[in-house]
Amino acid sequence: MKPLTLSPETLAGFDAAVVEATVQVFGSYGLVLEPIDHSGEPDHELACCIGFTSADVQGAFLMTSTKTVVVSAWPEEIAVPTASDVNIADWFGELSNQVFGRARSTLNPRGFAVSQGTPALIYGISLRRSRRQTTLARELSFVAPSGDLLRVYLDAVFAKPFELSATPDEGHLGPGEVSLF
């Protein structure tokens, strides 16, 4: 696909949706994340990638952070793991899924309607991402009270010109909402 340019308003709309989703999801688990400007490429211990697609869009959501951040956002209903990196990675994958799901619930009604895949997780030391090369190349950084960083990358290429609509469609269920039929 040939890269297309997105307007500043649309880019700002993507940023706002991701920031709101990230802050709200982690906040619901008791961790206050503050959006910050951070141009460096920090070392990460965890990375979760969720691919998405539609007829006109191909892309990926990537969230990276440290185990400290994940443990700080552990569900209060269950005990914090002491040794299991697998459990920490599992929860990081679910947090990524919830952040992207929440961002999608904001963006889908504005015309960014994509289907997502299941999360792919990587954990280790000194993880770095490759250079961005897409039309929608957003990098958003957050800092936890511990000083640890969390970063969200949203990359996509578009097959035809795209702008987020100003007036969202109605009818989407939001986070925490329940509908019994």
Partner: peptide, 16 residues
């Protein structure tokens, strides 16, 4: 019979 969006509130899940 129903649809509940994550992150869920435990009390709403219990009631459902």
């Amino acid at each position: 019979v129903g649809w509940l969006v994550k992150p869920f509130k435990p009390n709403l899940l219990v009631e459902a």
